[in-house]
Amino acid sequence: MTALDVSDLCYSYGPKRALDGVSFALRPGFTALLGPNGAGKSTLFALLTRLFVTREGRITVAGHDMAREPRAALSKIGVVFQQPTLDLDMSVMRNMRYFAALHGIAGREAVRRSEAALAQLGMAERADEKARNLNGGHRRRMEIARALIHQPEVLLLDEPTVGLDFESRQAIVDHVHGLAKAGLTVLWATHLVDEIADGDDVVVLHKGRVLAHEPASELRGGRPLAEVFIEMTGQKSTAREGRG
């Protein structure tokens, strides 16, 4: 069984088609959702997290149909949005426990899980700091840790490195690759090819359609991934040198 299965997904804003027959199935590991700005990545994320719904197409998370069993499906998803969603006046631990409570986890169990998730992201010693005092990279790491508290099977990240310096970006990319190696299904939306390793799967989304879905090494076929991406989408400005 695949952890995340999307089939024939369509979504329109009035007459404008934002997603047009998007289909892919993800196995555990790191999958990059690569697409230029305006490709439909955020719309897809809104559908995957049920902020939007559509009648055209189907989303299945860990065997649960998002339309028929939305609560079961949502309980299997961890999500990190593009915009930070932290309460800056609360401590890291309080932010974590608030989120745990939204998933019905309280008391010692919430603390235990929060500590474990923070440790996974190398943030254990920051638990008592105010979120406001963290730098951008650490805030993001905290949000990723938070998304893991309820032990989801699928982790969605919508351009999580936007606005971060190179070092923080690298640290987050490495951390999430580590989570994927440990068996989590990760969907990482980005327009930056240097965040993708050769062993990752890549779904290329352009103008609401999936242009390719294959391992990065096969997609680039010995050429730099940036070059292939530019060729497929005609987008120069966002492509950078690939890691692999």
Binding site: R50, L51, R71, A72, F81, Q83, P84, T85, L102, G104
Partner: peptide, 18 residues
């Protein structure tokens, strides 16, 4: 606008309860 509503609405609990 700030996104924390999204956090609330992606909780698996029913929306009316939240």
């Amino acid at each position: 606008e700030m996104g924390s509503m999204r956090l609330l609405l992606t909780s698996p609990l029913p929306r009316w309860w939240l």
